[in-house]
Amino acid sequence: MDSDYQRQLGKYFDGKTSEATELEEALRSDAGALEEFVATARLASALEDELQLACSSAQTAAWLESLVEEAENKAPANVIAAPRRAWAGLPGWAWGIAASVVAVMMLAAADAPVLDHALGLLGFEKYEQRYRDRQELKIFDRYDRDGNGAMSFEEFDGLYGGRAVRFQSMFQKHSGNDEELSMSEFQALRAAIRNGAGSGERPPGKLQFERSRAGKMFAAYDENGDGKVTRAEYLQMFEGPGQHPARERQFNESDQNGDDVLDRDEFVNWLNRKSGGKEK
């Protein structure tokens, strides 16, 4: 496959849809090009599926992007990039001094958030953290629709484009009894979500479970997303409302602790039995 086609393909799958004319010609005339196209489409889709599972929605990404653009407009990239390139070969101490000089120079010309971001880009993590804290505060203010200084789940859901239901239990845990997030609770929750959707927040293995076929089946049964499959949810997946003695029996057998709901393990055991596998 020639490199020109690879470039066309890359641009098509990375957002330059208007440049598909040459790609289209190749797809019509070259079986190899077509095969490469399908493989790239499948890989791109798998990457999206893998990487978007634990992250914010496109709406949030767009909002963050606008914040970054806003910061970049205030401190043009070349102001930051040029010194970084020039100093790449210097020893650490010299680099630090040079960075400090630039920081002081920028202090005179830029406002504090931009300075923090610039220092963060230069490698000073403390300042980058402060910059990120300010960004989070902006997001919080923007989505705290009623401006009461606390974020309800409805407002939080707005931030995630109506797809925050997957974070509902984490929200409840962070918000406590008042069911609203303060700014610090909001920051903690966002950090937990960013850190791999909960390496510290979710039970070990939960992410892998959600990605598995059994996890997706469980999510489909668990209509209200509370992490448990009730009898009604279980029966609903079969013939709909009505009497289903055989299914009732199955449910009773699967509900090993008799609490009238199937938790994750009970559900997986049922699936394994059904497909002839062993119980965990």
């Binding site: 990375d14 957002g15 791109a44 990457l47 999206e48 893998e50 990487l51 978007q52 992250c55 914010s56 496109a58 990404a61 767009a62 963050l64 992007e65 970054v68 653009e69 970049e72 990239a77 930051i80 990039a81 970084r84």
Partner: peptide, 20 residues
């Protein structure tokens, strides 16, 4: 880079700016 593209769904232009 893959995360910026596929997780954050950023355009390449925005990725270019962020990664210089």
């Amino acid at each position: 880079l893959l995360e910026l593209r596929y997780q954050d769904d950023l355009r390449c232009e925005a990725i270019a700016e962020q990664t210089e």
